[in-house]
Design a protein around this nucleic acid. Sequence first.
DNA 1: GTTTTTCTGTACCGAAAGGTATGGAACGTC
DNA 2: GACGTTCCATACCTTTCGGTACAGAAAAAC
Lengths: 202, 202
Amino acid sequence: METEILTAHRGRPREFCVDNALAAALRVFWTKGYEGASLTDLTEAMGITRPSLYAAFGNKESLFRKALDLYERDKLAYVGAALEAPTARGVAERMLGGALDLQLGSDPKGCLGVISSGPCGSEAQSIKAEVTARQASSHAALLRRFEQAKADGDFPEHIDPEGLVRYLTAVGQGLCIQAGSGVAPEELRRIVDTTLELWPGR
Amino acid sequence: METEILTAHRGRPREFCVDNALAAALRVFWTKGYEGASLTDLTEAMGITRPSLYAAFGNKESLFRKALDLYERDKLAYVGAALEAPTARGVAERMLGGALDLQLGSDPKGCLGVISSGPCGSEAQSIKAEVTARQASSHAALLRRFEQAKADGDFPEHIDPEGLVRYLTAVGQGLCIQAGSGVAPEELRRIVDTTLELWPGR
DNA sequence: GTTTTTCTGTACCGAAAGGTATGGAACGTC
DNA sequence: GACGTTCCATACCTTTCGGTACAGAAAAAC
C-alpha cells in the first residue's frame, strides 16, 4: 500500500499513494465531520496540495463518498458478520461488540454515520441523504434477520422485530454519541453489558 | 410575552421582544446546530438586525447559552419530573415518554444537547464543553436516583446502576438521532415500547 | 422644546471557506 | 534527445463567515 497500481499512464506519474491519502482523509472526516473538515485540514493530513486533491478525487463531496466506502468496507465489516450469528442474541452480541471494539481502538471516537446524520447546511444535505440511505439498507437487512429469528423462536411472541431493530440501533447510536463525547471505555462497556443482560431470549 | 419587562430605561426603548427573539433563535440552533446557524439565519428568524442582536445578546456564543437555558427550562422539564417517579421503571417511563413527546410535537426534531455533542471546530468547543458539563450533572442526578432504586429493590442485584443509567441515556440519544434522521413517529414509539418491555424489575 | 441616551439600519471589515487558473517541473513515448 | 502529457505549487477567485463603525432616528428626562 505504498505505491498505487501502475496502469499504463503517459506523462508524469503522481507522487502520492491514493489509498494512503484516502485513509488520511477518512480520519479527518471521522474526527471533524463533513462540514467541519476544511480543505486545509484535509490537504495537510493527506500530505498533498489542493489541486492534487481535486485532480485525484474530484471535489470535497466525492472525496467524502470514497472515504465513506472505505469506512464501510474496513470499519463496518462486523455488521455483515453479525447477521450470520446463529441466534438473535448472537446478532446483538456481535453488533454491539463490534461497535464497542471500534470505539476502543486507535481510530477516532464516534461513528462517521452517526455524526453525518446531524443537522447540516444545504450543501451537505445530499451527503446526509446518502448516509441515511445506506443506513436504511442495513436496517432492512437487520429486520429480515430478526424476523427469521422470531420464526426460529429466538425471542418471545410479544416482542416486535421492527421494534427490536430500532431499539438495538438506538443503543448503538447512543454508544457512539457517548464515545464521541469522551465517555470512558469502561462506561461504554457497561452500556453493552447492560443491553445484553436485558436481551430477551436466546 | 409581547413586550419586555419595563425597567426604568432612559433613551429609546428597543422595538422587539427579547423573549420572542430568543425563542426564535432557539428554533434556529435546534434545527441547524450551533455552527450551522449563521448570523443571517438567526437575524432573519428573529426579525432583528445584526447590531440589535449584538446589543441585546452579546455575541453568537452567549446567545446560544441563553437559548440553551430556555431549552432546558421549557423543553427538558420532564427530566426533573421523571426523577420523582416512585420506582426505577417509572423513571424510565417518564424519561423516555418525555423524550418521545418532545419528538412528536411541533418543535424541531432531534435534541439540542445531542446535536451539540458532535464534532466541531475550535470556536465551538467551549460550547460543546458546556453542553457536556450540563449532561454530566443530569447523569449524576439520575445515577443517585438509580442507586436509591437498587436499595429499594426496584431491580435485581446483578444489574449495575451506573450501567443502567448509561444504557437509558444511550437509548434516549438513539431516539433523538433517529428522530433527527426523519424516522417516522410510530417507529420512534417502538423504541420506547421495546425498551420498557425489556426493563428489569419495577 | 432641548438634551441625552439608546436603538435601528446600512455598509463595511478581516478571515476563512470551497474551488481554480497558470506556470514550470518531471516523467513515458517516440 | 525532443515531444507531449501529466503532475505539483503558488497565487488568486468569489462567497460567506462572525463581528463592528458610523450616522440618523426615536423616545425618555429635564
